[in-house]
Amino acid sequence: MKVGIDKLHFATSHLYVDMAELAVARQAEPDKYLIGIGQSKMAVIPPSQDAVTLAANAAAPMLTAEDIAAIDLVVVGTESGIDNSKASAIYVAELLGLNRRVRTIEMKEACYAATAGIQLAQDHIRIHPDKKALVIGSDVARYGLNTPGEPTQGGGAVAMLISADPQVLALGTTTSLLSADVMDFWRPLYHTEALVDGKYSSNIYIDYFQDVFKDYLKTTHTRPETMTALVFHLPYTKMGLKALRSALPLVDDDQQKRWLAHFEHARQLNRQVGNLYTGSLYLSLLSQLLTDPQLQPGDQLGLFSYGSGAEGEFYTGELQPDYQLGLDAGLPQRLARRRRVSVAEYETLFNQQLQWQAEDQVVSVADDPHRFVLTGQKAEQRQYLDREA
């Protein structure tokens, strides 16, 4: 029985800041951002959106009544959780109108957690093939204004429906894993922005990729050239390119050129959004599937998931005959329709995020076009609105 990704859909803000403009404001050469980190635009998340609303906005458009009836597991991977106890998945399930006989959990391990959710969901579906699982990677990446990590911010959510006989990608059952206590990136409970040792984190990322990729090849007796493309977690797109380059010596010149060409498609949409932590790998996968004309059913894709702190996993999937039917086909057009904000507007929105305090707060949603929005906080409870309810 095949189990894997049946549908993928993405949501982010309707706003972005131009990276060349941000570079000038930060007295940096534009090419440092455009080429050095490989980003052209960065999603600006307004205070009316958080990990819950982004997740719901990503999932709702792809779910049919049949899907909703079959879902009995919801996993939200996030490092932008809104409560230290209550899972964001419970809010998401309620907003989506899911059956109450559903298991709802939140998973955390930096950018890796959505992959853990997919592995859990696969096992669940193999036991219950008549059911479906909803796995969402949803995050708002924040490092602070005028910090070294600022140009690698962003945000959004990728929703994936996991099922038997999937439309998009049948996932393999063998993976390679690596984890260790590494202080390359962390966020103490008293911090609203992440702390990161940037150069060290970049080195650990590449080390982990090389380890799990080579281990996968060894344990599965797989030749690297049998993989049509390698898809990476992309906190910024240059990071994935560095990792890919480290694998090129394993294949001949023709395969190297093919891998590099496929990678340009895989990072196309991430360049326009920026970092979304747990969803970054899966936005790259969606970008690959939407924009790469050289893909064919039956192609094997290798996926590298990484979460700082640190945990890495490599696994593969086989592209299915009708994979285009399960994709968020309107995504490139939606990204093109976003409104560009000035650096000053971006900074104002960054500072207007809902505060971590007990007092009631009101958030303006007048300019937010999304179905699900955060309207504020009352009696220490976040207030969400479904505009179609």
Rank of each mutant, 00 (worst) to 15 (best):
A180L: 12
M183L: 15
F185L: 14
F185N: 13
W186L: 12
R187E: 05
Y190W: 14
A194H: 11
L195G: 08
N203G: 14
D207H: 11
Y208A: 15
V212Y: 01
F213N: 10
D215W: 02
T219V: 12
T219E: 12
T220M: 05
T222Y: 04
T222C: 07
R223D: 15
T228E: 09
A229I: 06
L234D: 04
P235D: 03
Y236R: 01
Y236H: 05
K238T: 14
K238A: 15
G240M: 05
L241E: 15
A243Y: 08
P249R: 08
P249D: 11
L250Q: 13
D252H: 13
L260T: 15
A261G: 13
H262E: 09
R267D: 10
R267C: 14
L269E: 00
V273D: 00
G274S: 04
N275M: 00
L276R: 04
L276S: 06
Y277T: 00
G279T: 01
G279N: 03
L283T: 00
Q294S: 11
Q296I: 09
Q296F: 08
P297G: 07
G298F: 03
Q300R: 10
Q300A: 07
L301E: 07
F304R: 02
F304C: 03
G307K: 02
S308G: 13
A310E: 00
E311Q: 11
E313Q: 03
